[in-house]
């Protein structure tokens, strides 16, 4: 009984400690984004890393997601004799849900893990201490460009995912099932409204922020992890934690944003 209480207590304390730390981290990272002098180069480099270098993965997953949506959508819609709605079904599910979520999950796997490991190794090898000792704010120098790049790159990647996905659905619909190409796009044109695009945009912005926030924060406070954040094992465990936590948060926030904006 005593042990159980002890565990609950220490778990709660750890949870509060981590949440507080993460909240403070986000505040400092956000405020440091607006500190002068603003340097463009690091942000461009990070957009290249998070965005441009994820583009191929996103093209690939987007295409196949769209194709499978076309396939599944067609079989379902045919039951109701409404194959003509394939265009709108594919477009709506991509723009509102699948585009932002799948893009975020893919980018977390590719860039989120890398950000966490990079920052974690910098912490481990005293590079972050070195910055602080040089009176260079690590938040402004290291974290802010990544955060800004995440917020810029995620919506762009999502847009690519959506467009390629819609084309994938088009290929399957018209090529495999002989749906009228005009009907595919017309259906999409009439059913997708600005609010749908807006929802996708809001989601991708939030996901971009979430990914960099969680990944960078986990790496930055590697040395404070209770499970021990030292050495290669510490970095690998923390990176796994960061990927799992940010993926789960993306799904939770996806639900919350959908519920709020619907």
């Amino acid at each position: 009984m005593y042990l159980l209480l002890e565990k609950i207590g220490s778990g709660t304390l750890e949870f509060l400690e981590t949440s507080g730390r993460m909240g403070m981290f986000l505040m400092r990272a956000l405020t440091s984004m607006f500190q002068m002098p603003f340097k463009v180069n690091p942000v461009v480099r990070q957009v290249h890393f998070i965005g441009a270098r994820s583009a191929f993965v996103i093209l690939f997953t987007g295409l196949f997601t769209g194709m499978v949506l076309g396939l599944q959508g067609y079989y379902t819609l045919r039951k109701f004799g409404s194959e003509g709605f394939l265009g709108s079904a594919v477009a709506l599910s991509l723009i509102r849900e699948l585009g932002p979520v799948l893009t975020a999950l893919m980018v977390i796997g590719r860039a989120g893990s890398a950000i966490c490991a990079e920052v974690g190794i910098m912490r481990n090898s005293e590079q972050i201490d070195a910055l602080e000792c040089m009176a260079v704010d690590p938040f402004r120098f290291l974290i802010a460009p990544k955060l800004l790049a995440g917020i810029i790159a995620m919506p762009l990647l999502t847009a690519i995912f959506d467009v390629i996905g819609i084309l994938g659905g088009y290929l399957v619909g018209t090529g495999l099932f002989g749906i009228n190409p005009g009907a595919y796009f017309q259906g999409m044109y009439t059913s997708v409204v600005w609010a749908d695009v807006e929802m996708g945009l809001v989601k991708s912005l939030v996901f971009g922020l979430l990914m960099v926030w969680i990944a960078a924060c986990k790496g930055f406070y590697l040395h404070m992890e209770r499970s021990g954040g030292f050495g290669a094992e510490g970095v690998s465990r923390t990176t796994t934690d960061a990927v799992v936590l940010s993926s789960v948060s993306v799904l939770v926030w996806d639900y919350l944003i959908s519920a709020l904006l619907l």
Binding site: M122, S125, E126, Q127, D129, A130, A135
Partner: peptide, 23 residues
Amino acid sequence: NRKQKDEVRENFGVLFQNAALFD
């Protein structure tokens, strides 16, 4: 505070154990 700390640290130079170069 952070700003005052930075002022103090401007007088510091540190050679870390593994040099802590930015890789």
